[in-house]
Design a protein around this nucleic acid. Sequence first.
DNA 1: GTAGATGTTATAGA
DNA 2: ATCTATAACATCTA
Length: 289
Amino acid sequence: MPELPEVETIKRGLDKQIINKRISKVSIEKSFIKKVGPSANAFKKALEGKTIKNVARRSKLLMFEINKEQSLIVHLKMTGQLVYRPKNNKIVVGGHPIAGPQNLPSKFTRVTIQFADKTTLFFNDVRKFGFLKIVDRKELNEALSKYGREPIDKDFNFPHFKSLIDKSPRKKVKSFLLEQKIIAGLGNIYADESLFVAKVNPERRVDSLTKSEQKLLFVAIVEIIKKAIKYKGTTFSDYVNAKGGKGNFQKHLQVYGRNKLECLRCKKGIITKIKLGSRSASFCPICQK
DNA sequence: GTAGATGTTATAGA
DNA sequence: ATCTATAACATCTA
Ligand SMILES: [Zn+2]
Protein backbone atom coordinates (compact mmCIF):
# COMPACT_ATOMS: atom_id res chain seq x y z
CA MET A 1 0.00 0.00 0.00
CA PRO A 2 1.90 3.00 1.14
CA GLU A 3 4.83 4.50 -0.66
CA LEU A 4 6.61 7.73 0.15
CA PRO A 5 3.70 10.07 -0.68
CA GLU A 6 1.23 8.08 1.41
CA VAL A 7 3.57 7.81 4.38
CA GLU A 8 4.43 11.50 4.13
CA THR A 9 0.71 12.34 4.08
CA ILE A 10 0.18 10.29 7.22
CA LYS A 11 3.16 11.94 8.87
CA ARG A 12 1.82 15.42 8.11
CA GLY A 13 -1.62 14.46 9.36
CA LEU A 14 -0.30 13.01 12.55
CA ASP A 15 2.44 15.24 13.78
CA LYS A 16 0.29 18.27 14.53
CA GLN A 17 -2.14 16.01 16.34
CA ILE A 18 0.08 13.92 18.55
CA ILE A 19 3.25 15.85 19.26
CA ASN A 20 3.49 16.58 22.98
CA LYS A 21 0.73 14.15 23.82
CA ARG A 22 1.22 11.71 26.63
CA ILE A 23 0.51 8.04 26.02
CA SER A 24 -1.72 6.58 28.68
CA LYS A 25 -2.36 3.04 27.47
CA VAL A 26 -1.17 0.69 24.75
CA SER A 27 -2.80 -2.55 23.73
CA ILE A 28 -1.70 -5.16 21.22
CA GLU A 29 -3.73 -7.83 19.54
CA LYS A 30 -2.45 -11.25 20.52
CA SER A 31 -1.43 -12.45 17.06
CA PHE A 32 0.56 -9.26 16.53
CA ILE A 33 2.73 -9.38 19.64
CA LYS A 34 5.60 -10.93 17.73
CA LYS A 35 5.63 -7.91 15.40
CA VAL A 36 6.18 -5.36 18.19
CA GLY A 37 9.35 -6.86 19.56
CA PRO A 38 10.35 -9.38 22.17
CA SER A 39 7.32 -8.97 24.41
CA ALA A 40 4.09 -7.03 24.70
CA ASN A 41 5.08 -5.82 28.14
CA ALA A 42 8.40 -4.39 27.08
CA PHE A 43 6.65 -2.58 24.25
CA LYS A 44 3.96 -1.15 26.52
CA LYS A 45 6.44 -0.16 29.17
CA ALA A 46 8.54 1.75 26.64
CA LEU A 47 5.52 3.83 25.61
CA GLU A 48 3.07 4.21 28.47
CA GLY A 49 3.55 7.42 30.39
CA LYS A 50 5.82 8.83 27.67
CA THR A 51 5.27 11.83 25.45
CA ILE A 52 5.66 11.94 21.66
CA LYS A 53 8.40 14.48 21.06
CA ASN A 54 8.53 14.41 17.30
CA VAL A 55 7.23 12.60 14.21
CA ALA A 56 9.44 12.02 11.18
CA ARG A 57 9.59 9.98 8.01
CA ARG A 58 12.46 8.42 6.06
CA SER A 59 11.60 6.43 2.94
CA LYS A 60 8.45 4.53 3.94
CA LEU A 61 9.40 4.38 7.61
CA LEU A 62 7.73 6.51 10.29
CA MET A 63 9.60 7.51 13.43
CA PHE A 64 8.06 8.71 16.67
CA GLU A 65 10.59 10.18 19.05
CA ILE A 66 9.95 9.24 22.67
CA ASN A 67 13.07 10.78 24.13
CA LYS A 68 16.69 11.41 23.17
CA GLU A 69 17.48 7.74 23.50
CA GLN A 70 14.38 5.97 22.22
CA SER A 71 12.00 6.04 19.28
CA LEU A 72 9.07 4.05 18.05
CA ILE A 73 9.47 3.08 14.40
CA VAL A 74 6.53 1.96 12.30
CA HIS A 75 6.44 0.35 8.85
CA LEU A 76 3.08 -0.11 7.13
CA LYS A 77 4.34 -2.57 4.50
CA MET A 78 1.41 -3.59 2.25
CA THR A 79 -1.80 -2.97 4.18
CA GLY A 80 -0.85 -1.07 7.33
CA GLN A 81 -2.79 2.02 8.39
CA LEU A 82 -2.31 4.59 11.12
CA VAL A 83 -5.56 6.33 11.94
CA TYR A 84 -5.99 8.95 14.63
CA ARG A 85 -9.33 9.38 16.37
CA PRO A 86 -9.61 12.84 17.91
CA LYS A 87 -12.30 12.00 20.42
CA ASN A 88 -13.49 8.91 22.11
CA ASN A 89 -17.04 9.09 20.84
CA LYS A 90 -18.60 6.91 18.21
CA ILE A 91 -20.51 8.54 15.39
CA VAL A 92 -22.90 6.64 13.21
CA VAL A 93 -24.27 8.29 10.11
CA GLY A 94 -27.63 7.22 8.76
CA GLY A 95 -27.68 4.18 10.91
CA HIS A 96 -24.76 2.70 9.03
CA PRO A 97 -21.19 2.56 10.08
CA ILE A 98 -19.05 4.84 7.93
CA ALA A 99 -15.46 4.46 6.94
CA GLY A 100 -12.91 6.19 9.09
CA PRO A 101 -11.93 6.50 12.70
CA GLN A 102 -15.47 6.43 14.00
CA ASN A 103 -15.71 2.65 13.80
CA LEU A 104 -12.35 1.79 15.19
CA PRO A 105 -11.06 -0.48 16.51
CA SER A 106 -11.86 -2.85 13.66
CA LYS A 107 -11.25 -6.52 13.06
CA PHE A 108 -7.83 -5.52 11.72
CA THR A 109 -6.71 -3.22 14.51
CA ARG A 110 -3.44 -4.70 15.75
CA VAL A 111 -2.19 -1.98 18.07
CA THR A 112 -4.08 0.75 19.94
CA ILE A 113 -2.32 3.72 21.48
CA GLN A 114 -4.46 5.84 23.76
CA PHE A 115 -3.42 9.31 24.81
CA ALA A 116 -4.10 11.00 28.10
CA ASP A 117 -6.52 13.41 26.41
CA LYS A 118 -8.74 10.46 25.38
CA THR A 119 -7.72 10.55 21.74
CA THR A 120 -6.47 7.36 20.14
CA LEU A 121 -4.07 6.19 17.46
CA PHE A 122 -4.98 2.90 15.76
CA PHE A 123 -2.59 0.70 13.83
CA ASN A 124 -4.63 -1.51 11.49
CA ASP A 125 -3.09 -4.09 9.21
CA VAL A 126 -5.00 -6.77 7.30
CA ARG A 127 -2.00 -8.81 6.23
CA LYS A 128 0.16 -8.19 9.30
CA PHE A 129 3.34 -7.55 7.32
CA GLY A 130 3.81 -4.23 9.08
CA PHE A 131 5.63 -3.75 12.33
CA LEU A 132 6.13 -1.41 15.25
CA LYS A 133 9.41 -1.45 17.10
CA ILE A 134 11.06 0.38 19.95
CA VAL A 135 14.61 1.28 19.02
CA ASP A 136 17.47 3.07 20.75
CA ARG A 137 19.55 5.64 18.96
CA LYS A 138 21.99 3.09 17.62
CA GLU A 139 19.27 0.79 16.29
CA LEU A 140 17.52 3.75 14.71
CA ASN A 141 20.68 4.74 12.90
CA GLU A 142 21.13 1.17 11.70
CA ALA A 143 17.58 1.10 10.38
CA LEU A 144 18.07 4.44 8.61
CA SER A 145 21.39 3.43 7.09
CA LYS A 146 19.53 1.12 4.69
CA TYR A 147 18.02 4.04 2.83
CA GLY A 148 19.33 5.92 -0.14
CA ARG A 149 18.54 9.36 -1.40
CA GLU A 150 15.16 10.99 -0.68
CA PRO A 151 13.65 12.11 -4.00
CA ILE A 152 12.11 15.20 -2.41
CA ASP A 153 15.35 16.39 -0.82
CA LYS A 154 16.14 19.92 -1.94
CA ASP A 155 19.70 18.92 -2.74
CA PHE A 156 18.81 15.84 -4.78
CA ASN A 157 20.07 16.74 -8.24
CA PHE A 158 20.91 15.11 -11.54
CA PRO A 159 24.60 14.47 -10.78
CA HIS A 160 23.48 12.51 -7.71
CA PHE A 161 21.05 10.50 -9.80
CA LYS A 162 23.72 9.88 -12.42
CA SER A 163 26.13 8.55 -9.83
CA LEU A 164 23.43 6.15 -8.60
CA ILE A 165 22.95 4.96 -12.17
CA ASP A 166 26.66 4.36 -12.51
CA LYS A 167 26.71 2.25 -9.35
CA SER A 168 24.05 -0.21 -10.56
CA PRO A 169 24.59 -0.33 -14.30
CA ARG A 170 23.30 -3.82 -14.99
CA LYS A 171 20.01 -3.64 -13.13
CA LYS A 172 16.75 -3.36 -14.99
CA VAL A 173 15.55 0.19 -14.55
CA LYS A 174 12.30 -0.75 -12.81
CA SER A 175 14.15 -2.86 -10.23
CA PHE A 176 16.64 -0.02 -9.82
CA LEU A 177 13.83 2.38 -8.92
CA LEU A 178 12.35 -0.03 -6.38
CA GLU A 179 15.64 -0.41 -4.51
CA GLN A 180 15.26 1.55 -1.27
CA LYS A 181 19.01 1.59 -0.77
CA ILE A 182 19.39 3.51 -4.03
CA ILE A 183 16.41 5.87 -4.02
CA ALA A 184 14.22 5.83 -0.94
CA GLY A 185 10.46 5.75 -1.09
CA LEU A 186 9.43 4.64 -4.56
CA GLY A 187 7.21 1.56 -4.72
CA ASN A 188 5.41 -0.22 -7.51
CA ILE A 189 2.94 2.55 -8.31
CA TYR A 190 5.33 5.49 -8.49
CA ALA A 191 8.10 3.52 -10.17
CA ASP A 192 5.69 2.59 -12.97
CA GLU A 193 4.32 6.13 -13.17
CA SER A 194 7.81 7.66 -13.30
CA LEU A 195 8.89 5.33 -16.10
CA PHE A 196 5.75 6.18 -18.03
CA VAL A 197 6.37 9.90 -17.74
CA ALA A 198 10.00 9.42 -18.80
CA LYS A 199 8.89 7.16 -21.70
CA VAL A 200 11.29 4.44 -20.59
CA ASN A 201 10.47 0.72 -20.78
CA PRO A 202 10.80 -0.91 -17.33
CA GLU A 203 12.89 -3.78 -18.71
CA ARG A 204 15.69 -1.55 -19.98
CA ARG A 205 19.05 -1.96 -18.37
CA VAL A 206 20.07 1.09 -16.43
CA ASP A 207 23.27 1.53 -18.44
CA SER A 208 21.31 1.52 -21.70
CA LEU A 209 19.56 4.82 -20.94
CA THR A 210 20.68 7.75 -23.03
CA LYS A 211 21.70 10.93 -21.27
CA SER A 212 18.41 12.49 -22.21
CA GLU A 213 16.44 9.51 -20.88
CA GLN A 214 18.39 9.66 -17.64
CA LYS A 215 17.44 13.30 -17.26
CA LEU A 216 13.81 12.68 -18.14
CA LEU A 217 13.63 9.90 -15.59
CA PHE A 218 15.22 11.98 -12.87
CA VAL A 219 12.79 14.82 -13.47
CA ALA A 220 9.85 12.40 -13.69
CA ILE A 221 10.57 10.82 -10.31
CA VAL A 222 10.76 14.13 -8.51
CA GLU A 223 7.71 15.48 -10.30
CA ILE A 224 5.53 12.39 -9.71
CA ILE A 225 6.42 12.06 -6.03
CA LYS A 226 5.79 15.74 -5.34
CA LYS A 227 2.53 15.67 -7.23
CA ALA A 228 1.39 12.55 -5.38
CA ILE A 229 2.12 14.23 -2.06
CA LYS A 230 0.19 17.27 -3.21
CA TYR A 231 -2.79 15.01 -3.92
CA LYS A 232 -2.32 13.21 -0.60
CA GLY A 233 -1.39 9.83 -1.99
CA THR A 234 -3.07 7.04 -3.92
CA THR A 235 -5.86 4.90 -2.51
CA PHE A 236 -6.12 1.64 -4.40
CA SER A 237 -7.70 -0.50 -1.75
CA ASP A 238 -6.43 -0.09 1.78
CA TYR A 239 -4.58 3.19 2.04
CA VAL A 240 -6.11 5.86 4.24
CA ASN A 241 -4.57 8.96 5.76
CA ALA A 242 -4.35 9.73 9.46
CA LYS A 243 -7.99 10.82 9.47
CA GLY A 244 -9.15 7.64 7.79
CA GLY A 245 -9.72 9.41 4.46
CA LYS A 246 -8.71 8.34 0.97
CA GLY A 247 -6.02 9.86 -1.21
CA ASN A 248 -6.69 11.57 -4.52
CA PHE A 249 -3.78 10.64 -6.74
CA GLN A 250 -5.50 7.51 -8.10
CA LYS A 251 -7.37 9.93 -10.37
CA HIS A 252 -4.07 10.95 -11.88
CA LEU A 253 -2.47 7.56 -12.44
CA GLN A 254 -1.45 7.06 -16.04
CA VAL A 255 -0.32 3.41 -16.16
CA TYR A 256 -0.57 1.68 -12.81
CA GLY A 257 -3.80 -0.30 -12.68
CA ARG A 258 -4.56 0.37 -16.36
CA ASN A 259 -3.65 -3.06 -17.72
CA LYS A 260 -5.28 -3.80 -21.11
CA LEU A 261 -6.55 -0.23 -21.45
CA GLU A 262 -5.56 2.19 -24.16
CA CYS A 263 -2.54 4.36 -23.42
CA LEU A 264 -3.65 7.83 -22.35
CA ARG A 265 -0.70 9.45 -24.10
CA CYS A 266 -0.26 7.88 -27.53
CA LYS A 267 -3.83 6.48 -27.77
CA LYS A 268 -2.38 3.56 -29.71
CA GLY A 269 -0.61 1.29 -27.28
CA ILE A 270 -2.41 -1.08 -24.94
CA ILE A 271 -1.06 -0.97 -21.41
CA THR A 272 0.73 -4.24 -20.77
CA LYS A 273 1.54 -5.89 -17.48
CA ILE A 274 4.61 -8.07 -17.14
CA LYS A 275 6.46 -9.77 -14.31
CA LEU A 276 9.76 -8.23 -13.48
CA GLY A 277 11.51 -9.96 -10.66
CA SER A 278 8.70 -10.74 -8.29
CA ARG A 279 6.73 -7.58 -9.02
CA SER A 280 4.39 -6.53 -11.78
CA ALA A 281 5.29 -3.71 -14.14
CA SER A 282 2.73 -1.90 -16.27
CA PHE A 283 3.78 0.13 -19.29
CA CYS A 284 2.85 1.24 -22.79
CA PRO A 285 4.75 -0.86 -25.33
CA ILE A 286 4.41 1.86 -27.95
CA CYS A 287 5.58 5.01 -26.24
CA GLN A 288 7.88 3.58 -23.56
CA LYS A 289 10.97 2.73 -25.56
C1' DG B 1 -13.01 -24.72 -5.22
C1' DT B 2 -8.64 -22.71 -6.21
C1' DA B 3 -4.61 -20.66 -8.35
C1' DG B 4 -2.77 -16.20 -8.71
C1' DA B 5 -2.41 -11.57 -7.57
C1' DT B 6 -1.93 -7.50 -4.17
C1' DG B 7 0.75 -1.06 -2.67
C1' DT B 8 6.75 -4.34 0.98
C1' DT B 9 10.87 -6.11 2.45
C1' DA B 10 14.54 -9.47 4.32
C1' DT B 11 17.23 -13.32 3.43
C1' DA B 12 19.58 -17.32 1.42
C1' DG B 13 21.65 -19.18 -2.37
C1' DA B 14 22.92 -19.43 -7.30
C1' DA C 1 26.77 -7.33 -8.55
C1' DT C 2 22.41 -9.15 -9.64
C1' DC C 3 18.79 -12.32 -9.79
C1' DT C 4 15.75 -16.07 -8.05
C1' DA C 5 12.99 -18.21 -4.77
C1' DT C 6 10.84 -17.97 -0.42
C1' DA C 7 8.58 -16.25 3.53
C1' DA C 8 5.72 -13.30 6.46
C1' DC C 9 -0.34 -12.99 5.89
C1' DA C 10 -5.33 -12.14 4.54
C1' DT C 11 -8.43 -11.17 1.01
C1' DC C 12 -10.21 -10.72 -3.50
C1' DT C 13 -10.80 -12.12 -8.41
C1' DA C 14 -10.76 -14.92 -12.49
ZN1 LIG D 1 1.55 4.99 -25.24
